[in-house]
Simulated assay, not measured.
Amino acid sequence: MQAFYSDQFVLPLPEGHRFPMAKYRMLRDQLAQHLPEVRLTEAPAATRGELALVHTQAYIDAILEGTAVPAVLREIGFPWSPAMAERARRSVGATVAAARVALTEGLAANLAGGTHHAYADKGGGFCVFNDVAVAARVLQAEWSRTRLADGSHRPALQVAVIDLDVHQGNGTAHIFQGDDSVFTLSLHGDKNFPFRKEAGDLDVPLPDGCGDADYLAALEQALQRLEGQCQPGVVFYLAGADPHEGDRLGRLNITADGLEARDRRVMDWCWQRRIPLVFTMAGGYGTKIEDTVQVQRTTYQVALGYWKRWQGLQPNARLA
C-alpha cells in the first residue's frame, strides 16, 4: 500500500506552539519499523494549476510568495516561512498522488493532510490549502478527459468526503456547497472549533463526552444516509485521531478500540461497494503524542488489510 509523506519540511514554530509537528515523522518511523508493506514515498508538490482548481489566485500567490498579511497568518495559526509554503504544497500533492494511486490499487494514503479548515480564499485552524478539495477536483478533471471505448465521455466522477476529524470541515463544506458532484459528510464535536459551522451535505454534531457506542451508532446512521443520497466513485476519508479520549482538543471520549472500529467500518463500507478510498490523517493533539501516533498507526494496520483484498481482485474488476 502506498503512502506519501512530507514530514521533512518542518515549520520553525515558536517555543510552546501547540501544533504537534513531530507526530508526522514519528508516524513515518512507526510505519517503516512495524508495517514494511506500506510503501513510503516522498510527496510531490502540488502545482499552481492544481491549487487553482480550488483556491483563488490571490491567496495562492500570498502563500507561495510570502506576501500574506498578518491577519491571514493568524487565522492559519502558522508564521510564514519558505518551509511553511513548501509543506503546504507537499501536503496537497500527497493527497493528489494518493488519489491517483487509489484509483488503480483501491487504497492509498497521505501521512498528513486532511486540511479541511482551508477555504478557497483563506486558511484557518492550522490548514493552509485544502488538500482533499484540490485532489477531488484533480481527479474529476482527469476523469472527465478520459473517453470510453465508444469515444464518448465518462459520466462525471462523484466524490464523497467522509470527515471524521473531531472538528467540522468548514472549509471543505463551503467549497462544495451547491455542488452535486461532491457529497460532504462530517461527524464532529458540536461545541468544538470551528464555532461557526458551514452547512455540509450531512453534518452530525456530537455532544461533549460522546463515547464509543453512541459514536459508532451515529456513524452507522450517517453511512446509511450517505448511501441513499450519493453513489461515489471515490471516497476521501479524514481519519482524525482527535476524537480519542486522550486528545487535548477533542472533548470526546472515544477509545483506541472505538477508533479502530470506526476505521474498519468506513473501510469495509467502501470495500463492500468496491469504492476506492483515499485517506488522510487530519487532526490529532494527544496529551501524549505517542497516543496520537498509535491511533494513526492502527488506521494503517486496518487499511493494509483492505488494500490486500483489493490486490486479490482481477485488474478489470477494479476502477481504473
Rank of each mutant, 00 (worst) to 15 (best):
G123Y: 01
R297F: 02
A222Q: 12
V204T: 00
W310K: 05
R248L: 14
F78L: 03
C270P: 08
D247S: 06
R196E: 13
A133D: 06
E260K: 05
L64G: 12
W271E: 14
T104C: 07
Y59G: 06
A173G: 09
L107T: 07
E260M: 07
Y5C: 03
A256W: 06
Q296W: 07
Q221A: 14
T67N: 07
S186W: 04
D163V: 02
Q229Y: 12
P276R: 11
L238I: 05
E245K: 13
F193D: 01
L277A: 12
T298P: 00
P12R: 11
H17N: 07
D163Q: 02
E42T: 11
A112D: 03
R273M: 10
T146Q: 08
P12W: 14
A3Q: 03
G169A: 08
D179S: 02
A156Q: 13
D131S: 01
L185C: 11
E50W: 00
R147G: 04
T299M: 10
F129N: 10
T298Y: 00
R274E: 14
V295R: 10
M281K: 04
G286S: 10
H174D: 08
A97E: 12
F129D: 09
Q301C: 09
R265V: 15
L31Y: 02
W80K: 04
E220F: 12
R265Q: 15
W143K: 00
A135Y: 10
S81V: 10
G123Q: 04
H34E: 08
L319V: 13
L319C: 09
F19D: 02
T146D: 00
R265S: 15
C270T: 14
L103C: 08
R90T: 13
V166L: 11
R262E: 06
F279N: 07
L35W: 00
D242I: 13
R251T: 01
V204C: 02
A46G: 04
E75F: 04
S181P: 00
A85E: 02
L223M: 14
N130C: 05
E50F: 00
R318G: 05
D257L: 12
E260R: 11
G125D: 04
G16C: 11
R274K: 15
Q158S: 11
D214I: 07
D165Y: 03
L187C: 00
G106D: 13
I60Q: 11
H174S: 10
E220N: 14
A108G: 12
M84K: 14
P82E: 05
C270S: 12
I254K: 10
V101N: 13
T104N: 10
D131F: 02
A135K: 11
L13G: 09
P194C: 06
D121N: 12
G284K: 01
Y5L: 06
A43F: 05
M84Y: 13
E37V: 00
G125I: 01
A141S: 06
P36R: 07
A3T: 03
A173P: 09
Q177C: 11
H188E: 04
V295T: 07
V54M: 03
L111T: 14
G200N: 02
S81F: 13
Q168W: 01
